[in-house]
Amino acid sequence: MERPKIGVFSLTGCGGDQLMILNLEDVLLDLLSYFDIKDFQEISSFKEDSDLDIAFVEGSVSTKQDLRKLKEIRARCKMLIAIGNCAISGGIQAMKNGQMEILERMKRVYGIEEDIYGVLEPKGLSAYVKVDLEIPGCPIEKEETLRAITSILHGDMPDQFDYPVCVECKLKEYPCVLIEKNLPCLGPIIVAGCGARCPGLGLPCIGCRGPIKEEANAAAELEVLLSKGYDEEHIVNLMRIFCANFGEIKKITEIIRRRSGKGRQE
């Protein structure tokens, strides 16, 4: 069989997901040898503008240039895989979406008004093009990624987690940080697959793998955290770190903003 032709690309992000692939030190050289790598700017000066069987894309679409690049990649690949939260939903840089205009962010950080970057409100790839597979995480889990790549090499689509971090945490018999330490844990609405890393360390889940798409009940989570005495503003900030482009959470932000707006009028 011919080796699949692949490319690994990054849009706007931190490089952490590509790095997680390189962190597969034990198997890296073997793994890479299964592929015919046509483009991997971070580690190679070799580049060939050929069609690709698979493109791995990290990072969000945050500039017009990102968007152009994404469309080019989509046009040349058969399968497009979004790696990491930035590529799936815009990631951490989407945190203030809908709260602070992107040009306002630029003005605050750079003190300039002219849009020299051609900035766009950060979004995931699927807001613009068809995405065939999403590997969640900030960063991606390397074992999960390896499993996904192996499945694809065998011609299958990998299984995806459809239950929350909370379930994983219970399976591991970690003490619940929400109940026992009163910490604002997002485990109930975040997709599993990390082995409940944070609760395992006695920390609350901050949601780096993103929400379980159809099922996350963000409103119920909000009520639970409010009952624990956390203020709304903090909870919303927390939920927005990784999930700001997610419908349910957008809705909640809106409700709270309206409510607190009313509060001021009274």
């Binding site: 990072g59 945050s62 992107i102 605050r108 950060p122």
Partner: peptide, 11 residues
């Protein structure tokens, strides 16, 4: 692409 971290943590 710029990510504007300083603006993200405001507030």
């Amino acid at each position: 692409g710029p990510r504007f971290f300083e603006a993200l943590v405001e507030g």
